[in-house]
């Protein structure tokens, strides 16, 4: 199933690639960076994790069972959500649910919109399309949502004096949090917007690189890349907005009183 023009990498070549890591390791010893162990572990992990991924995907693509695809998507979403929650240390506990909801909704909607309406795969769960696209959507919206949530709660804390004054003037939770919500959403979306602006001029996007290396026509690869980039940006935007709107209330009591970092417990 190798397209014309693609050069297959053999197992000896795969090992040869590690030789550059050996050079890096030698340099690390010479300069005394103390990174040899980390480099070794990272290299081994690259081999093991990616080969495992290749084997899993090969199996998933060949069995083509709808429930395998669904289970895999579920696992990917949960893992991505865990990373999001971990990256927002100022966030109140109990954020997992709303983050999971935001990730799942956007990932499912955007992924299947691409496969069904744009790529028009004959089978809705076609793993060869669904899994990689969902991976890109989740990976990118994960970064955006994490940035937005992190900024939301750190900015709320930074504005605690202003929020107290606003609340004392009669502001409700939304009115008190609005400035931070806006800032958080900008923080979540700006990297995506920047990367759209730089695509094609500063770098060749990863997916397109892969398709071109695999022998695809650059223009065809470009079409795919445009679709994916727009959909991924939309997913990041929708996911960030959902996550922020669902979670800012958790920094307030039901009476609209802002809870500073140390006071925020599991929200009700």
């Amino acid at each position: 199933m190798t397209p014309e023009g693609a050069v297959v990498i053999g197992w000896p070549q795969l090992l040869l690639a590690a030789s550059f890591m050996l050079i890096t390791g030698a340099l690390s010893v010479a300069i005394g960076l103390g990174l040899v162990k980390d480099l070794a572990i990272a290299s081994v992990r690259t081999y093991v994790q990616l080969l495992a991924l290749g084997l899993v995907l090969r199996w998933v693509f060949s069995v083509r069972l709808w429930w395998v695809v669904v289970v895999l998507l579920g696992v990917m979403t949960v893992v991505a959500t865990r990373i999001v929650v971990k990256r927002a240390p100022d966030a109140p506990r109990g954020l997992f649910g709303s983050a999971l909801f935001s990730m799942a909704i956007t990932a499912i909607t955007v992924t299947f919109a691409v496969t069904a309406l744009i790529v028009r795969v004959p089978v809705w769960y076609e793993p060869r399309y669904v899994i990689p696209i969902a991976g890109m959507v989740l990976g990118n919206s994960m970064t955006g949502i994490a940035l937005a949530l992190e900024r939301l709660f750190s900015d709320l804390d930074a504005r605690s004096g202003e929020i107290l004054a606003l609340t004392a003037l009669g502001a409700d939770r939304w009115e008190a949090a609005r400035a931070s919500v806006r800032l958080a959403l900008r923080a979540g979306l700006i990297p995506t917007i920047n990367s759209m602006a730089a695509a094609g001029i500063v770098f060749i996007p990863g997916m397109m690189t892969g398709q071109v290396l695999a022998g695809a026509d650059p223009l065809e690869a470009t079409k795919y890349q445009i679709v994916v980039m727009l959909m991924v940006s939309a997913a990041t935007a929708i996911g960030s907005i959902l996550a922020v709107m669902l979670s800012y209330r958790r920094a307030f009591t039901a009476d609209g009183v802002f809870l500073e970092k140390g006071l925020r417990g599991p929200a009700s």
């Binding site: 003037l169 009476d255 609209g256």
Partner: peptide, 10 residues
């Protein structure tokens, strides 16, 4: 509570 705070201002 928000309406209360418009009457009892801090």
């Amino acid at each position: 509570p928000a309406v209360w705070r418009t009457r009892v201002a801090l």
